[in-house]
Design a protein around this nucleic acid. Structure first.
Lengths: 225, 225
DNA sequence: GTCTATACTAGGATAGAC
DNA sequence: GTCTATCCTAGTATAGAC
């Protein structure tokens, strides 16, 4: 008999972010409600992914955080992998889009060094502030299973190429010291930014302080005037 | 029914460096061979840990790489956790020891900036070249289970404090720009170094190039002369 | 010390009720 | 859309032979 007998309540609700006013009559019989659940699911996955890593990300934990039962996930995604993949893809994309967008905003003749500073600042802000998806993507990029890696990889390459171009031109241009390996420099900088979610919290310092420090470091590459 | 009486083992597992007895007599009877296996095990664990992350690290994979069968691991360690814990602890320690040692080597009056450069270079070399344990420790620090974190955390704090001291004194001293948050700067730099195993391979560039680039970045913090 | 065989459990996934 | 029940594989760990 499988008597339930225990009736576990799963109402833990450690959720504080109750932004969306969801207590409506019936949120509508088409699409909308499902779409919200989908978003909750993605966001929950991003958080767990960041905390626990790829392999440590359990559907049960995701479900708990998204406030539904694990099997419900399969209504939205075909598999754990499909869900995770979308999170990572989004994270990758939103960083790239955000930075490209900021760069595009700069006036025509902006010096390369200034463009680089802009990219540094914006990447950092995405990572620390704007997108938990990006954080999740970064943290887990290295341990994704081979299959998933392929598609993501190409986006990743593009983004890297964008940076690389900026650095190479800046060096060719004399704005960056001729004696540094720009590839190493670029990867070190991006690394510094990517690692920041590991230590930064609002309690450590203001985001603007991090930005300022990152820009200071970047200026170490500048040709001495 | 059949519920077997709770026979839980509570091996406390504070594995601390089993007395490295290293008997030298002959290699097969006692001691030595086991010690070698133990080292293979640790090294294999470090590699898998770096590649797959904490949760993705399976005893089966470790065993395979160390060329034995999974259950044999239990002859050396009480649990998967105990094994992983030793790897992480070692990684943490060897970074700290290596850097402290290099710093101690510097002549008495060495300027703080020079000490910082030294720390940057040595930390980078440990991470890229000298210790796969350190890489494993760094990559997984963030996703270790709560229990394991405690002990490791304190070592980690010490190491961070060592760096922080250097930076604060350098700033108080006027060697580092007064307008940067040294905590942020320090964490960004260490982050850049810590992230490097993620992208660096001998094919990307020479380690010395990475070191040079890291030092160039560091110089961005220097007060303008 | 290291193996084979096996007990046990967690967690991904499916079926089908509501 | 979301749930409960359940299947099934993979992975930790133990027993005990060699």
């Amino acid at each position: 008999m499988s008597a339930p007998g225990e009736q576990r309540k799963r109402r833990t609700t450690s959720y504080s972010r109750a932004g969306a006013d969801s207590s409506r009559k019936h949120v509508d019989s088409d699409g909308t409600k499902g779409q919200q659940t989908r978003e909750r699911l993605l966001k929950a996955t991003a958080v767990i992914l960041t905390e626990k890593g790829y392999s440590g990300t359990r559907l049960g934990d995701i479900a708990k955080r998204a406030e539904l039962q694990a099997p419900a996930i399969y209504y939205y995604y075909d598999s754990r992998e499909a869900l995770i993949e979308e999170v990572v893809r989004r994270g990758q994309q939103s960083a790239q889009e955000h930075v490209e967008n900021a760069l595009a905003q700069l006036p025509e003749g902006t010096p390369l060094l200034e463009r680089i500073r802009c990219a540094v600042e914006e990447h950092l802000r995405v990572v620390l502030d704007l997108s938990e998806f990006t954080t999740a993507a970064i943290r887990n990029m290295g341990q994704l299973p081979e299959g998933m890696r392929q598609q993501i990889r190409s986006d990743h390459k593009n983004y890297g190429a964008l940076w690389q171009r900026l650095f190479e031109e800046a060096q060719a241009n004399g704005e960056i010291r001729a004696d540094v390996d720009v590839t190493a420099a670029r990867l070190l900088i991006i690394g510094a930014l990517n690692w920041s979610p590991e230590w930064w919290t609002p309690r450590v310092c203001d985001i603007d302080d991090v930005v300022a420090a990152a820009l200071a470091l970047t200026s170490g590459l500048v040709t001495d005037q």
